[in-house]
């Protein structure tokens, strides 16, 4: 029943793409808002642009954790325990971000609001950085032993390659967030957002180019995969095309299309990396025999089948009502007495 493992690998990657696209833009808004929004009104508009949807977006992360636990428990156990300190920091920033959004506008005091604005910024930045660094280490390989335990400390995780992935993630999500904000803002704030989009894109583009070269030159397995199946280059190529098209659409004021393109770019990049990793989920830098793959780290077939049935029943509803909620809140942000 190998196809079940492949299906679950694909589904897991799609869930992570869902997380990066959906929560990605609200992380991006968090990263950008101290620079883009100049006064309390503009900050409230930024915050309320994600206000009704950020909580639903974060569920993609919860689902990602649950799906990893259920489909590939050995990876879930090794990864989370091996990255202990990093995971605790992820929890810290996730918690701080949630309460910052909720607490921020509860009191009128400017000092209170400024303090929580900075917490919101720092925690959004922290999540993007930490998840990027974690992913960088997954791409690169970790000190995974025969028992599936990861050695090393937090300092091992903070290597140059992983840090570059982290910084690139920050700019990717910031770009994505800026494009989302262009749908939600008007007037001066919108003009500022539009000036920032190309700048962020250029920085992201440069970082990502360096990253692509480093990855291809430094990771033989990934380079070989693309050399053996050159057609797969379509994924990274599509991501590149999408990012360029997104900029053109922002310039023309077609913000929603730009947002879809930006989402496609994120998915394209993640799929490109996932294709390079396949079938590995965790690469051992000690001995490739210790690698955890979608075959040796998975749950058995009956668990995967039941989960697949649940996903097939559940996810269409999720997508449908999520689209409905976004539809109801579409258009430029209006502040009301109920807003954050």
């Amino acid at each position: 029943m190998m196809w079940l493992n492949i299906v679950w690998y694909a589904l897991f990657v799609i869930i992570i793409a869902g997380y990066l696209i959906m929560d990605g833009f609200d992380l991006g808004v968090g990263i950008l808002h101290p620079f883009l929004a100049k006064n309390d009104d503009e900050r409230r508009i930024s915050l309320n642009s994600i206000g009704p949807v950020w909580d639903g977006n974060e569920v993609w992360l919860v689902l990602g954790g649950g799906a990893l636990f259920a489909a590939f428990p050995m990876v879930y156990a090794s990864l989370f325990s091996g990255f202990y300190a990093a995971m605790m920091l992820v929890l810290l920033v996730l918690i701080l971000r949630t309460v910052a959004i909720e607490f921020r506008s509860k009191r009128p005091s400017p000092r209170w609001r400024t303090a929580w604005d900075w917490v919101f910024f720092a925690s959004s930045l922290g999540i993007a950085l930490l998840l990027g660094v974690a992913f960088g280490n997954i791409m690169q390989g970790v000190l995974l032993d025969a028992q599936g335990n990861i050695g090393g400390t937090l300092l091992n995780l903070l290597n140059p390659y992983a840090l570059l992935v982290g910084v690139t993630t920050i700019f990717m999500l910031a770009t994505h967030g800026a494009i989302y904000l262009s749908m939600k803002t008007e007037g001066e704030l919108l003009a500022r957002v539009k000036r920032w989009v190309p700048r962020l894109m250029i920085i992201f583009f440069v970082l990502n180019t360096v990253l692509v070269f480093w990855t291809v030159l430094g990771h033989d397995a990934i380079a070989d995969r693309y050399l053996q199946m050159p057609l797969l280059v379509l994924f990274p190529a599509a991501a590149l095309a999408a990012v360029i098209a997104a900029w053109l659409m922002v310039r023309r004021g077609r913000y929603f299309v730009a947002f879809l393109l930006s989402s496609a770019m994120i998915a394209g990049l993640l799929f490109s990396a996932a294709i390079g990793l396949y079938p590995n989920l965790l690469i051992s830098s000690i001995d490739v025999q210790y690698n955890l793959t979608i075959f040796n780290a998975a749950s058995q077939a009956n668990t995967l089948t039941i989960m697949l049935i649940m996903a097939v029943i559940g996810m269409p509803f999720v997508l449908l009502y999520t689209a409905g909620v976004y539809y109801i809140f579409r258009g430029k942000v209006q502040i009301s007495s109920q807003s954050y």
Binding site: D55, G56, N57, E58, V59, V62, L63, G65, G66, A67, L68, F69, A70, A71, P73, Y76, S299, T303, I306, M307, M310, A311, G314, M315, V318, Y321, T322, V325
Partner: peptide, 17 residues
């Protein structure tokens, strides 16, 4: 794990959405 994943798909998305 499958019970936690099911919570995400069936319940948590409803709440969060």
């Amino acid at each position: 794990g499958s019970l936690l994943a099911a919570e995400g798909i069936f319940a948590f998305f409803l709440e969060g959405g």
